[in-house]
């Protein structure tokens, strides 16, 4: 089984990010960039599938500038076999990304596309579903458990009400949620080995046309700090005074 894992380079998900004063973008000065944490969980799951003998080849792919090589090298160190960097400096949205990924999936013919449910920068939660639609493959989103079966997967999905178990045939697109696994730390041998693994630079196969354009970025009004109280009685009085009970 061949697994394709699309990854995204995002600004450090634990950093405090602000909009630039000009409103033209995010102020990422001095901040680190990482593999989108949900994509890292997807990659970890793929590596475990390979370790269990369920997968034979793990391909990671990203679309972006040459700076994304850093995240692809890390993915190779975690356990991917080959990385593809589709180079562009064009603005992207889930429509453009899913169209490009669909073109690659048709060429690479994976049995499974495993990816994060959303990127932590844009929080859009669209690309996996759009990709599945374009390929006309079944989809399972918000996966918290994936079991390989003879001709597909049994996936436990997180839902608004709790959980649901779905059976999906392969090839399929599965997007992963936080509780699927805990990604490993990268061991030194992995980092050294990753240097000799193939990283292909490619040009986009599609026009990368965006459907949604971001006009400006702004910081939301901050919530002002409130009051501190020193006893439960004061707390009760303060809550009651707000008139929200």
């Amino acid at each position: 089984m061949r697994i394709l894992i699309p990854i995204k380079r995002v600004v450090d998900p634990y950093a405090k990010v602000r909009a630039l004063p000009s409103g033209e973008g995010l102020d990422t000065a001095g901040l680190k960039f990482e593999i989108n944490p949900f994509d890292e969980i997807a990659l970890e799951e793929a590596v475990r599938m390979k370790e269990r003998g369920e997968a034979t080849e793990l391909l990671v792919i990203t679309i972006g500038g040459s700076e994304c090589e850093e995240q692809l090298r890390k993915a190779l160190a975690i356990g991917a076999d080959k990385a593809i960097l589709v180079e562009t400096s064009a603005p992207l949205d889930p429509s453009a990304v899913s169209t490009e990924l669909a073109a690659w999936a048709k060429e690479l013919q994976p049995d499974l596309i495993l990816m994060g449910k959303q990127g932590t920068e844009n929080d859009e939660n669209q690309t996996g579903q759009r990709l599945a639609a374009k390929l006309d493959w079944p989809q399972a989103t918000f996966a918290s458990k994936i079991e390989k079966q003879s001709s597909g997967f049994q996936v436990t999905r997180e839902t608004d009400l709790g959980e649901e178990v779905v059976a999906v045939a392969q090839p399929a697109v599965i997007t992963v949620d936080l509780r699927l696994n805990e990604p490993r730390y990268i061991a030194l041998p992995g980092i050294i080995k990753a240097r000799s693994k193939p990283l292909e630079r490619a040009t986009p196969k599609t026009a990368l046309t965006v459907k949604v354009k971001t006009r400006s970025y702004a910081n939301p009004p901050a919530r002002g700090a409130g009051i501190r109280v020193n006893s439960v009685d004061e707390l009760v009085a303060a809550i009651a005074a707000k008139g929200v009970l």
């Binding site: 909009a19 932590t120 929080d123 006009r215 970025y217 910081n219």
Partner: peptide, 14 residues
């Protein structure tokens, strides 16, 4: 909202 609500984006969509 984006980046966990830290930034609000104004977006255009046809």
């Amino acid at each position: 909202p984006m980046v966990a609500g830290a930034v609000i984006a104004t977006v255009d969509a046809e």
